[in-house]
Amino acid sequence: MKRRELVVALFVLGAARSVGAQARPTAAELAARVDAFYGRTRTIRARFTQFFFARAYGRTSTSRGSIVIERPGRVRFDYDPPNGKIFVAEGERWLMYEPFDGGPGQFSRGTSSALVAALGILSGAIALDAYRASVGDRSPGAPADTDVLELVPLQRDPHHRCVRLHVDPRGAVRRVGLLDHEGNWNTFALDALVFDEPIDPSTFTFTPPAGAREI
């Protein structure tokens, strides 16, 4: 390649990189995009795939199911069989039910949960201004049209030290990752998203079967 052609090629490459860098949104722009989208969104339905990476064992377990959200603060997870767990939350109050083969199963409840924290921004239970925001790198396997918003709590949270949101051009979150204090990642990939469909209020109430043991 002649010197002049090389100079032109390098100039074009540099200009392309510059345009790409300028096109990448800032953390403030991403946060505003998310805030605006969910500020005008009332309900959310989706399929989820949950990946839980246990740092101590170096292994990832996978679960699937459906999620329903009604803002502000109502969330329900229904895990597919054979898991079959049901998690219902309103604000910080939650109930988790686990079925057992041949028995009524068991349940627990409380007022603080990692699942509430994971979906808190989507459900409106947690405000974005509770975090320090920065732009992160896209996780392997994440949607190609997303940008990553990294969020670190301004005050220590018992359940997580970082939240990673993969945000599409609309401002919709397509993947949520939660890093806890032991280095475990709890990630939810959201697919088949449907917004603002009416949801029966009874969806967010659940009574464990008779005989279920509270733990």
Rank of each mutant, 00 (worst) to 15 (best):
E5H: 15
Y97H: 03
A210F: 09
A15R: 02
A9N: 09
F77A: 02
Y38N: 07
R59E: 13
G136Q: 10
D35K: 11
L190S: 07
P158E: 04
T187C: 04
R174Y: 01
F77C: 01
Y57H: 10
D196Y: 04
L13G: 14
P143K: 11
G105E: 02
L165Q: 05
G84M: 04
S108Q: 10
H166N: 14
E197Y: 07
E214Y: 05
A133S: 12
R55I: 04
G105Q: 02
G58F: 05
R161E: 15
F100L: 07
D101Q: 12
S108N: 05
A15W: 05
G103T: 07
V34M: 09
P209W: 10
D78Y: 00
S112N: 08
V19S: 03
V34I: 13
P158T: 10
L30S: 08
P208M: 09
G177F: 03
G102I: 11
I67E: 01
R45I: 00
T111Q: 12
R156D: 02
P153V: 14
P82M: 04
R164L: 14
V135I: 12
Q155W: 05
V173A: 03
W94G: 01
P72F: 09
L115D: 07
F87P: 00
R47W: 00
A32Y: 06
G141T: 15
S134W: 05
L10G: 13
V176T: 01
R42P: 00
A192H: 05
Y38L: 11
Y38R: 08
F52G: 03
F52V: 14
P104T: 06
F51E: 10
E182F: 13
Q155E: 13
